[in-house]
Design a protein around this nucleic acid. Structure first.
Lengths: 344, 344
DNA sequence: TGTTAGCACTCTTTGTATTTGAGTGCTAAA
DNA sequence: TTTAGCACTCAAATACAAAGAGTGCTAACA
């Protein structure tokens, strides 16, 4: 068990290291105003803290650096709850202020602002609406061989795909089909569209369309096929600012990872509700070894529809970022719920 | 004027430097099989070449390095025309092999393959069709206040945008409007859509829609508003491989630039037909100081619709990359022309 | 018994010569 | 005109010393 003094010292060390990126030694620590013990005392405590695995040394006679376990303890027990500046709050509120631009733009905007506010890298996923419902279906013939299928959802989202038409199909046939599709499928949630379309309309489709699988594919993609929303990353190059990433190889690892969409999806896949902090190797991804990730999901009503995240060095300003991410995720939840939850 | 021997030496120096990234000295040059002069002779020639501005020294007693002027001369006069390996050719042909995926995917694919083939960074812009023509327009009401406007073009491309409906509009009104819009605007090229819609339908729209500007805006974006195609960048982190970019600051400059879409558009904006090479400061962009850019546009018929480019260090394998870019741009032109030019 | 001063020790960082090696320019001979 | 020879330059590597920040341990102190 840790004594109060050990907690105090651990906290100061980590705070200091987060600020300075320099290993912190007993002598300098003792000089701080609110520290009233001698360097020797501090050294003893530090030795204990190191023995317990909260601190590390970079070499035998260096100052101490927080270990992963140290950060973990710090985040779990020592964090003083931060508060946001007025300017930060207005910046966040402004993201969803004007709806005209469309949801996707707004989300992208969120990523940009988040990265500017933190000077770390931001990742915003979503939103995906599992309960998008079909509002309208269209099939628009392009030429003799091909047509575009379009789904409009009740959230105003549009999916489209080109597919081939069977030989000699008549415009009237298509119109009839569209009518039937709309009749049978309006109001169906995208998540159920796939099975519904098989059950309700496959027979009909088969009769009229040679490769109706293409249309089914489109529907599959629109619903379950791409089960995740779009991914936006803001401030990709912010990592260059961190002194511990002076090393080209380290930067490269992280940059490479950020280019792989799949990896990023995996990385920020939400595991539980609320703000989550993953420190260094707590992230599965190899490249995250020296980084930490703070994530939070946002929802429409009770349904999580997306994730926001901040990726920074392990030496991250946890307090500030957690507050920020928490605040933004709630704000997004509020706005989106107000916008889209009414229809349920 | 340069003597044959000077040309020869210049060529060997640049070839060697492109391979090794090391300043090349007279002694090592003289050791090469196909060089039959003594180091002293070479030194004399090098001194002349330096005086003329084709070579530079990194310090007084170092080997020579090509200057920008040197590269320029090399590209303009000394390039041996490269040829592609069978595997490279099949890789390129495979890009547009299956149309099912959609044009956008194929273009993105082109960027990826191009960067893998060269191990430089690739940039692919487009395609934008100036002569997309309107095939069909739809307005789908979402709820009492809003609706989605959709344009389908004769290339199968779909644009959509949400806008607000005026109070108390009837579904029948909308249907009427859609009919009129389709009647008046089908077949109109997107480039002329904006003025046409004003001339032909503004009066009508104003009567039925409160904020018909939103719809006009959408049309504007679909046609002239985003006058450029989508931008794909492949192998962003390939620059890390280059020994002259061991320096974090240098990498950062380039990475920062690549994150700014606007800068990238400007960078690869085509200036004339055919393959173009821009070396170092020949690019306006500050961050390109140590990089070269090789671009080529591709067309549908005679109309250029997009650009492909390779961004690498000044010490780039010009011969190989030029051949590759030339080949791919022609291939894309062929495929796209076959696909889309028939309708004109 | 917990705290602290003192001290020897370690290891990085910084600075300063010194050497090595690759390369140059110039001169004079072939 | 070419080339051998030589003095010279500079970056990079090597070695060494000193400085500085830090530690651990012991013994004295409150």
């Amino acid at each position: 068990m840790l004594t109060d003094r050990q907690l105090f010292i651990l906290q100061i060390i980590i705070d200091d290291f987060i600020r300075s990126a320099q290993p912190v030694g007993s002598r300098n620590l003792a000089k701080k105003e609110d520290v009233s013990f001698s360097p020797a005392t501090i050294r003893n405590e530090m030795a204990d803290l190191e023995e317990m695995g909260f601190l590390e040394k970079t070499h035998t006679s260096s100052g101490r650096v927080p270990s992963e376990k140290g950060y973990r303890y710090y985040v779990d027990h020592l964090l003083s709850p931060g508060s946001l500046r007025r300017s930060e709050r207005t910046a966040i509120h402004s993201i969803f202020a004007d709806r005209q631009e469309g949801l996707e733009k707004a989300v992208q905007n969120a990523a940009t602002i988040l990265s500017e506010l933190t000077s770390y890298t931001s990742i915003v996923l979503g939103p995906k609406f599992n309960d998008h419902r079909v509002k309208n279906l269209q099939i628009i013939p392009i030429d003799a061989q091909s047509a575009v299928a379009i789904i409009v959802t009740d959230t105003g989202h549009v999916e489209n795909r080109i597919f081939s038409l069977p030989e000699g199909i008549e415009p009237a046939d298509i119109e009839k089909m569209v009518n039937i599709l709309n009749d049978r499928l309006t109001g169906v949630p995208l998540s159920e569209l796939r099975q519904k379309i098989y059950k309700e309309t496959a027979e009909l489709m088969r009769r009229h369309l040679r490769n109706y699988e293409a249309v089914l594919n489109m529907f599959a993609e629109a619903s379950g096929g791409s089960p995740i929303g779009k991914l936006f990353i803001g401030g990709k190059t912010n990592i260059f600012n961190q002194p511990e990433f002076r090393d080209v190889e380290k930067v490269r690892l992280v940059m490479d990872m950020m280019e792989k969409e799949q990896d990023m999806y995996e990385l920020i896949r939400p595991t539980e509700a609320g703000v989550q902090v993953k420190i260094g190797t707590e992230n599965a991804e190899q490249a995250m070894e020296d980084c930490s990730l703070i994530t939070a999901s946002y929802s429409v009503g009770d349904e999580p529809v997306g994730t926001i995240a901040i990726l920074g060095p392990k030496r991250m300003e946890y307090s500030r970022v957690i507050t920020l991410v928490d605040f933004l995720s709630h704000d997004m939840t509020n706005v989106l719920t107000r916008l889209y939850n009414t229809r349920i």
